[in-house]
Amino acid sequence: MKTEYCGILILLIALVAGVAADESVPALPHEFWGTVTIDGSPAPAGTEITAMIGGTGCGSITTTKSGTYGSSSRYDGNRLLVLANEDQAGATIAFLVDGKEAGQTATFTPNGTTRLDLSVGSAVTPTPTPTSSNGGGGSGGGGSPSPSITSAAPTTYTGQASLATSKSGEVQVSTTVRTTDGSGSVTIAAGTTARDRNGKPLGEVSVTTLDSPALPPVPAGNTLGLALTCGPDGATFDPPITLIFTLTEDEWSRIADTSVLHVVWYNPSTGSWEEVAATVDPATRTVTARVSHFSTYALAWPSVLKEVTVSAGQEVATIAPPPAETQQPTSEAIPWPFIGAGCLVLLLAVAGAYAWKKRG
């Protein structure tokens, strides 16, 4: 009886081992997100995107917004999850957009996250296979590859924008954010390391104008013009990013000497404004500075003093004194004692002459 039980147990173990040997170990998914276009136009919401490895579907997603699929933030929408086995790591992934093959491919990297802009139709331009960030520790001495970086012209937004960054904080797509009135902008180039005040990858950027009443005290001898609040406060950039102030023709004409325009930022730890090196371009009426962190920035120039400042110890006059020849003498300038003495001598002389005449 015991022999029969042992035989059955051995048979079951063999069956389980055989099944396990036939199945590959599933790997962590590779996540994708980015833009999607059809014939050069943003793909409409409801477009289906399917990932294929070796002709087999391994993940799909239906877009919910025009022109994009997934999101740079894992908390702001689903991403396209490519599911495969560990032995398929390094395999080429093809993508179908509503059944049409896109001009872009990728390499399957377990636990990777990649921005990949997809396009189908006549406007398709095939792009090199991007590398991907790998959330796992990896093996060997090569380290984890970085996500693909798009070095094309910056994508421009108004007010605020999401920033595509890798897990190390490296910006993947050049991004420009402008104020609503166009008076200021920041441009963060692809490849820049962008982190928030806590050292985490920066996920969002905002630029707004700041009204004069909300500004800290103005530096002595300066006039502050345009002021911007760049956020989030405390974000850092390596290398520095580009900050641009743009003036209208009317604003430019009001400044007596535009060559003295400069940029200052408010340092809350010292309660003072500090100057930043800047370049003035009269042709475009812009002032450009390179900044390594976010704060409050302002365009400044020396105040034009209309007052007439006289020597120390005297008051400051707002109106120049009239010419000397038109000045009227004050009461203190008339020699009244001498006039009184003269009148007295004259009176005595008259009295003496009268007395002399009367005696004769």
Rank of each mutant, 00 (worst) to 15 (best):
residue 38 I to V: 13
residue 38 I to G: 02
residue 38 I to H: 01
residue 39 D to Q: 10
residue 39 D to N: 14
residue 40 G to S: 02
residue 41 S to N: 11
residue 41 S to H: 08
residue 41 S to Y: 12
residue 43 A to T: 08
residue 43 A to E: 03
residue 43 A to C: 12
residue 43 A to I: 10
residue 43 A to H: 10
residue 43 A to G: 06
residue 43 A to V: 04
residue 44 P to K: 05
residue 44 P to L: 07
residue 44 P to S: 08
residue 45 A to I: 05
residue 45 A to S: 12
residue 46 G to L: 09
residue 46 G to T: 15
residue 46 G to P: 10
residue 47 T to M: 08
residue 48 E to D: 15
residue 48 E to C: 09
residue 49 I to R: 03
residue 50 T to M: 11
residue 51 A to R: 00
residue 51 A to E: 02
residue 52 M to W: 14
residue 53 I to H: 12
residue 54 G to Y: 14
residue 54 G to V: 08
residue 54 G to S: 10
residue 55 G to A: 09
residue 56 T to F: 06
residue 56 T to L: 12
residue 57 G to P: 11
residue 57 G to Y: 03
residue 58 C to G: 08
residue 58 C to D: 04
residue 59 G to K: 08
residue 59 G to Y: 07
residue 60 S to H: 15
residue 61 I to R: 05
residue 61 I to E: 01
residue 61 I to F: 06
residue 61 I to S: 03
residue 62 T to P: 01
residue 62 T to G: 07
residue 62 T to C: 04
residue 62 T to V: 11
residue 62 T to I: 11
residue 63 T to C: 15
residue 63 T to D: 04
residue 64 T to S: 07
residue 64 T to V: 14
residue 64 T to W: 03
residue 64 T to M: 10
residue 65 K to T: 08
residue 65 K to H: 09
residue 66 S to D: 15
residue 66 S to E: 15
residue 66 S to R: 06
residue 67 G to I: 00
residue 67 G to Y: 00
residue 67 G to P: 00
residue 67 G to R: 02
residue 68 T to A: 04
residue 68 T to Q: 09
residue 69 Y to R: 01
residue 69 Y to C: 03
residue 69 Y to V: 00
residue 69 Y to T: 00
residue 70 G to Y: 01
residue 70 G to H: 01
residue 71 S to Y: 00
residue 71 S to W: 01
residue 72 S to P: 03
residue 72 S to L: 05
residue 73 S to G: 12
residue 75 Y to G: 07
residue 75 Y to N: 15
residue 76 D to F: 15
residue 76 D to P: 05
residue 77 G to F: 01
residue 77 G to E: 07
residue 77 G to N: 09
residue 77 G to Q: 11
residue 78 N to D: 13
residue 78 N to F: 12
residue 78 N to M: 06
residue 78 N to H: 07
residue 79 R to E: 09
residue 79 R to I: 04
residue 80 L to Y: 06
residue 80 L to V: 12
residue 81 L to M: 13
residue 81 L to P: 02
residue 82 V to F: 12
residue 82 V to P: 11
residue 82 V to D: 06
residue 83 L to W: 13
residue 83 L to C: 14
residue 83 L to D: 11
residue 83 L to N: 14
residue 84 A to H: 07
residue 85 N to V: 09
residue 85 N to T: 10
residue 87 D to K: 08
residue 87 D to C: 06
residue 87 D to G: 04
residue 88 Q to L: 04
residue 88 Q to F: 01
residue 88 Q to D: 08
residue 89 A to R: 13
residue 90 G to D: 13
residue 90 G to W: 03
residue 90 G to H: 04
residue 91 A to R: 14
residue 92 T to Y: 03
residue 92 T to F: 03
residue 93 I to Y: 02
residue 93 I to G: 05
residue 94 A to V: 06
residue 94 A to L: 05
residue 94 A to P: 00
residue 94 A to C: 06
residue 95 F to K: 02
